[in-house]
Design a protein around this nucleic acid. Structure first.
Lengths: 238, 238
DNA sequence: AACTATATTTTGTGATCACAAAGAACAATA
DNA sequence: TATTGTTCTTTGTGATCACAAAATATAGTT
């Protein structure tokens, strides 16, 4: 038996209009984001090629792109792995999220029209429903959609790619976090955001977004949970 | 004759220890950063391959990486080009710079030790000299080094790649800007930054960095110059 | 049993080729 | 002259191969 931990990647139907490289990229991206590959696990081109049943070439391209987005990391050996996490890096990633996303929200505010406002509201309601059902997976997805829908109001996008990079780096550990979270009570900061938008109050919107991000991982801020992150990371190394 | 504008890329010696792909990446990155390729100019793999005298393969890899970093842009035709600029996007890039870099500075502050402080000061002095000589090219480079040296004090780096991406996107237009600037008087905000560091005053440091960035492109904020950017971009399209 | 030296396998890198789709050049028609 | 239809060329994509370096397994030695 191989000592490497097995990789289970959820395969989606490949749209014929899209290139193989693009499909591989999206597939691997999803696998990293959903924590399907353990941090520290080193990936080989040929392994992924046989796993996804494509030639090595599209794998190479996708790996390079994901590395550039910091979703993967190129080691000195030129081998690629899911980056390990430390408690301090985790904190830095979240503080960066707050700084950039509150900025992006304020910059998007003037561009939010009626239609987008309605879509934001309905997303908020879906989140409330998922919250009552305690469907953490769904909450996480919808929450991400809410943030993205907010920032993309700004037609001159420069921040979203940066934000998505941060999400990618946090992705594997979000799942770890939410999986350990049972009774996490989420204050609905989205309501505060919605009223801030209605009033065109940029500062209030920034406060709401900041609070939303900070509270969304308050539970993960405990030393015990962060320590379990690090352990997980180091386990995969051996 | 070909209608395409010629590309003059400064070739550097290739270190044998480094992969061809890496060398190509750095070379193309420098070319984009220095505005040696006109925005809107579409690049082909084979053209660059013959230009740099390598096989198409390293070019492909480098182009994909640069596209992921938003230094290049993949069009619908799957062709790659230097992104065009608009006045609004220019503003968004700079506001993003201010938001992220002031945050990065504050996050780096607690980690700045004596040795780094001295290096920052000597860089500041070099900038002063370059300023007296009115050597704009040198000022730009040293200024970038100053900022990078400041942010990298933080050993848990997550923001620098994001910041470098913004620099890359602004790169081509910085040269345009500085080339039109003759009597640009730069207030020495670095001194303010240095005293803020001495006092461990995060807020003052943020103010200094913000002012430094904002004043560094105040001249570019005039509608006339921004308009010339857009023209330049559109000229290369035809 | 622990360490070192050797042999074998695996891996990333880069070159080359085939091919379909996009682009350009050109001819024919209105 | 402007425009459409048709060739011919160029281009990105993806597959396959060669090779050197790294990793792993194996044998040899103390």
């Amino acid at each position: 038996m191989d000592k490497k931990s097995p990789i289970k990647i959820t395969l989606t139907e490949r749209d014929g209009a899209v290139t193989i490289t693009q499909w591989v990229y999206e597939t691997l991206r999803g696998a990293v984001m959903n924590g399907q590959i353990l941090p520290g696990r080193s990936l080989t081109i040929r392994e992924l090629a046989t796993l996804l049943d494509v030639s090595p070439m599209p794998i190479r391209e996708a790996l390079r792109q994901l590395s550039a987005e910091k979703a993967l990391e190129i080691q000195g050996n030129r081998r690629v792995m899911v980056p390990k996490m430390t408690a301090m890096k985790f904190t830095e990633l979240y503080e960066a999220r707050i700084a950039i996303e509150s900025h992006a929200a304020a910059r998007a505010l003037p561009y939010i029209d009626k239609a987008r406002f309605m879509r934001l509201r309905s997303l908020d309601q879906l989140i409330n429903i998922a919250q009552e059902e305690n469907n953490l997976e769904q909450i996480s997805i919808l929450n991400q959609n809410f943030h993205r829908l907010l920032y993309t109001a700004n037609p001159h996008q420069v921040t979203l790619p940066l934000i998505e990079s941060l999400w990618l780096q946090l992705g594997p550990f979000m799942r770890l976090a939410t999986s350990k979270l049972e009774e996490h009570y989420l204050i609905d900061r989205h309501n505060e955001a919605m009223t801030a938008i209605e009033n065109q109050d940029a500062f209030a919107l920034q406060l709401a977004i900041t609070a939303d991000i900070r509270e969304g991982i308050a539970f993960a801020g405990t030393p015990e949970l962060l320590h379990s992150f690090i352990e997980q990371s180091h386990m995969a190394a051996h």
